Computed example of a mutant assay.
Amino acid sequence: MEIANLSKNFASIPVFEGLDLSISSGEFVCLVGGSGSGKSTLLNIVAGLDHADGGTVLAPPAAVMFQESALLPWLSAAGNISLALKFAGVPRQDRQQRTQELLNLVRLPDAGYRLVHQLSGGMQQRVALARALAQNRSLLLMDEPFSALDSITRDFLHDELEDIWRATGRTIVLVTHNVREAIRLGQRVILLASDQGSIAGEWRVSDTQRHDAVAGAALAETIRTVLHREVHGLAAVS
């Protein structure tokens, strides 16, 4: 994914002015930043849900996950996944098997018959992830998909997502306000500045930092320091 000289305005207020960003195939990147830094807007532009006012965005078609699962409540878990497979052009005779494979992948092998209201929040997000994977897109965009979940469920889904990423080789871009979540999941953490969406910082994350609490905490403190300096500095100017 290549973004060059991206600009975007809302009511003549610039969100991005000349943003450049490159993400390699198969990379897991997390975007962090203060409110108004343009994280969700950037994902929407890449996904084609919003338009840029200038610059270029070169990216493959993407599947998108949002904070809310947005499952269709009148369909079962399997029905939601099967519908995505239908839209992806999977033949009818292959959908049942592929649906079950995806349920197995997100560790919900026996939940296919359940309606949405019969699923916990964590289970709904796992079905939403399976539905996104059903689209068979090489790029997965995730906009704070775990923010509404309790910490235990969130930690479990972090492990699940990492396993799926390694198994599928997809490129993943995840937006989060949680610095520790970004370090837990991302190979690279990018901090968007609140001032016109420039990049205020960028960090490579080692496997040790990702999985060791002490190393992860040290990196998180470094990122938070830059984030707080950037946000508070902007507030002082304002």
Rank of each mutant, 00 (worst) to 15 (best):
P14Y: 02
S7Y: 02
A62M: 05
M65K: 02
L83T: 07
L108C: 04
A132I: 07
M1G: 13
A63E: 10
V106M: 07
A70L: 15
A52R: 10
P14I: 00
R188H: 06
G233E: 11
G201W: 06
L192Q: 06
I223F: 04
L174P: 11
I183K: 09
P14F: 02
G112T: 08
R180A: 09
L191N: 01
L83N: 01
N5A: 12
A167P: 00
E162M: 10
A200R: 07
T208H: 12
L140K: 13
H51C: 06
I172L: 07
V15C: 11
R92M: 05
A59Q: 07
T41R: 01
V57L: 01
R210W: 13
S37E: 05
G121E: 04
G48R: 04
L43M: 06
L42T: 03
P61Q: 08
A11P: 01
K39G: 09
A193N: 08
H117C: 07
D159N: 10
Q196C: 07
L227K: 08
L161F: 13
L85W: 11
R154Y: 09
S69Y: 13
L119G: 05
A182G: 09
N44T: 03
R166F: 03
D155K: 15
N136D: 15
G48F: 05
K39A: 06
M142L: 12
G34C: 05
D159L: 14
L115Y: 15
S24Q: 14
G216Y: 11
L71H: 04
A128G: 06
H51T: 14
E221W: 13
A218P: 01
A217H: 13
I23A: 07
D94F: 12
F146T: 04
I190C: 01
H51D: 11
Q125M: 05
R92I: 03
S35T: 08
D143A: 08
R154W: 09
K39D: 08
L115S: 10
T208I: 13
A84R: 01
N80I: 03
A220N: 12
L71S: 02
S238Y: 13
D150Q: 11
A213G: 00
S40A: 03
L157V: 10
A217F: 09
E17C: 12
L191V: 02
R137K: 14
R180W: 06
H177A: 06
S238F: 11
H211T: 14
S238K: 13
M123K: 04
Q209L: 02
V32W: 07
G216F: 08
V205Y: 12
Q93K: 13
E27C: 02
L129H: 04
L141E: 10
R114V: 00
A47K: 07
Q209G: 06
D159E: 13
N9L: 11
G122Q: 01
T41G: 00
G197S: 00
S35P: 00
I3Q: 06
G121K: 01
D50T: 08
I3N: 08
G216N: 11
I223K: 09
H211M: 03
S12Q: 13
D53R: 11
I172V: 15
F10M: 10
E101Q: 15
A236Y: 15
Q196K: 14
E230I: 00
A215Q: 13
R229Q: 14
A134K: 02
Q118I: 00
E17Y: 09
G36S: 10
L192V: 03
A84E: 03
L43A: 05
R229A: 15
Q187G: 15
L192W: 00
K39R: 05
A220F: 10
